[in-house]
Design a protein around this nucleic acid. Sequence first.
DNA 1: GTTAGTAGTTACCCAAAGGTAAGCCCTTAC
DNA 2: GTAAGGGCTTACCTTTGGGTAACTACTAAC
Lengths: 125, 125
Amino acid sequence: MKIIKNESLPGKAECAGSLKNVLDALYVLNGKWKLALILSLVQSSKRFNEIQHEIAGISSKVLAKELKDLELNDFIERKVYPTTPVTIIYEATGYSRTLKSVLGELSAWGEQHREKIKQSMRKQS
Amino acid sequence: MKIIKNESLPGKAECAGSLKNVLDALYVLNGKWKLALILSLVQSSKRFNEIQHEIAGISSKVLAKELKDLELNDFIERKVYPTTPVTIIYEATGYSRTLKSVLGELSAWGEQHREKIKQSMRKQS
DNA sequence: GTTAGTAGTTACCCAAAGGTAAGCCCTTAC
DNA sequence: GTAAGGGCTTACCTTTGGGTAACTACTAAC
């Protein structure tokens, strides 16, 4: 049995495919905040001010914009409870949860990356 | 049986931790192109024009900038071979390869995301 | 009546990201 | 000598992202 690699592409198709996939993923998940917001809301539903408090550094303007964006893309839901005064809760949808393994890997990587940075800082000093 | 939630934080520490990790990861991996570039070079080392051809849509200016950035952050190496004319090859470092599982997950997610988008397009039309 | 909290919106502005287009230096090919 | 490729750089411009601060509407508490 021979698998003949004709001129065309030793697995190049898959490579190009995963490249396209990554580009497509980044297209909806772009920006500084989206993945962090999704993670925060996957962990637990929250109100506007709670989110703003948890994600240090985000302004109310940007937060409002990002939340709208995420709602449009079906990552989160905005629920309004007719208490007095009204309570507004943002919660992650099931679709957000499909990102769990991505977020898991990213978090793990971020952690060891921080370690690496710390070490190279030490060397320099 | 009662599980008493004491005031203090049911796993909140880990949550905040992973949030910080993700934020840290996004700090170095920001922008439209970095992860795609790393993926492309992890798959195989390439020359400037090859990369530009593979990643459709990136301009030479942006590509040059991103490559410099990635080199500074130790994700890739720029190798110059004294052929005539000189050949310049960009290759992924071992550190880039620590991103493999992140990229794997992201690619998988991107693929099924594209499927989902296609379906919702069909519904609308 | 003043303060504080919730959930934002609005206006203004700056800086960075990114696109377009042209050019440059070097070399081989026609 | 002129075109073509490789690997960029430069200048210019637009878009966007994001920060600040003020303001709104409603309510409850002091």
